[in-house]
């Protein structure tokens, strides 16, 4: 009725993706080691704390795989520590080269690209080729972003006051809000154009 479109979206429908290659995880682990030598599980716990609900993206083995890689690259050293009641564990320690790498990383000012160039070009191309109505594409995208935002905000609500992971979630929410604002601008632009 009245052209209202009803969609049902199940946010939980999608399985968590696995096997992320965490580009920055290497640097983060090095930085965490800069203070003191640590066990792998300690490093993993610290990462989980910082990421909160987003830490689900890290699969259990990933930290250890990365630590091995660091060891091979000579950025960290590992030392086996015998434990009386458990299997031996490795203590990781930063090397001079690793330290250099951390400093370099901290000084790196690069910022994730904010321009939604791809989607923009998608709209332009769709309009030019007459393949799809850009306004409909915008609506669909807006919808997807809204759903993501709802999930992120809901996750943020479950974070306790002052949680460091909450800060990350807030960043996610604010960026999605910015995306929504831009999508509204897109909607105005493309719906005001005469249909070809």
């Amino acid at each position: 009725m009245c052209g209202v479109e009803v969609r049902a979206v199940d946010v939980s429908g999608k399985e968590p993706s696995s096997g992320y290659r965490l580009r920055v995880v290497q640097e983060v682990l090095l930085a965490l080691l800069a203070k003191e030598a640590s066990y792998g599980y300690q490093l993993r716990a610290q990462l989980q704390l910082a990421l909160g609900p987003l830490a689900d993206a890290l699969n259990a083995g990933q930290v250890y795989v990365t630590l091995n890689r660091l060891e091979k690259a000579g950025l960290a050293t590992a030392e086996r520590v015998g434990q009386s009641d458990r299997p031996d564990r490795k203590v990781y320690r930063l090397t001079a080269a690793g330290h250099e790498r951390v400093v370099e990383w901290l000084g790196d000012m690069s910022w994730p690209k904010a321009a939604p160039t791809e989607f923009h070009l998608k709209l332009v191309a769709a309009a030019a080729a007459g393949l799809a109505n850009p306004a409909h594409l915008v609506d669909a995208q807006r919808h997807a972003v809204l759903v993501e935002l709802a999930a992120a905000q809901r996750a943020a609500l479950t974070e306790p006051h002052g949680s460091v992971a909450g800060l990350l979630l807030e960043g996610v929410v604010l960026r999605l809000q910015a995306d929504l604002t831009w999508l509204d601008a897109c909607a105005r632009h493309w719906s005001s154009r005469k249909e070809p």
Binding site: C2, G3, V4, E5, V6, R7, A8, V9, D10, V11, S12, G13, K14, E15, P16, S17, Y20, R21, L22, R23, V24, V25, L51, P53, L54, D56, A57, P112, D139, H143, L146, V147, E148, A150, A151, A152, R154, A155, L168, V172, L176
Partner: peptide, 25 residues
């Protein structure tokens, strides 16, 4: 002045959230 769209938000987990972290390579 018109309702143009309705979305039912089923309460799911934060599974897809991970994609939002930008941590993927």
């Amino acid at each position: 002045g018109s309702l143009v769209e309705e979305t039912r938000l089923t309460r799911g987990t934060v599974g897809r959230l991970a994609e939002l972290t930008g941590l993927e390579g």
